[in-house]
Amino acid sequence: MNGESIPETPLSLEALKKGDRHELARMVDLYSEKIYKLALKFTNNPQDAEDVLQETFLKAMRALPEFEGRSSLSTWLYRIAVNEALMLLRKQKPDLALDTAVQEEDSEEGISSNGLILADWCCLPEDELLSEESRRFLDQAIQHLPATLRGVFILRDLEGLSIKETAELLGLTETNVKTRLLRARLFLRQQLSRYFGERLKEWEQK
């Protein structure tokens, strides 16, 4: 999506729509790594991510003849992948309501300064912040985000999409994206503050 891996010869949309297998294979090689990583961020599980990857390309190959090119091919593939990932999460955790909590998540109510953890852990040394264990904690913390917030955070802060692109991909308004992003970031800051706050205490005792 960032145009990092431009193929030597650009993909021919015409050939793809006609089902040219050589061109389809090139498309798969061009986007599979990005889609797999995206799926991994959503699911935090290699097997689930692989399922999302396979389903994404199966659906894409079926739908390509009708692809109208209103968005770029990469955006279109991303959208399929995001939907697949969200669908999988919904199936796995139906109780993790994706829609019922939306109203609450789109309002700014509940964004409260009460109960914020105020440990100033920014000064921790890099090797503490970037340790294997910290990495694992960061990955797990994302999984504790409600799915509606997770998608916004992954697309905006991990994938680096703009607010507008994130809104388009998830079918939300830009205002909703911003509110959810605020909530997601504050939620993760709180999680990390709890975790690194403990590290900070240990470190200060050394």
Partner: peptide, 20 residues
């Protein structure tokens, strides 16, 4: 000071995630 800490740790949180 409290808000300074919140904003600095928020920035750091985003930064840590972006530089995985």
């Amino acid at each position: 000071e409290n808000c300074r800490i919140v904003i600095n740790t928020l920035r750091k949180t985003i930064d840590l995630y972006q530089h995985q």
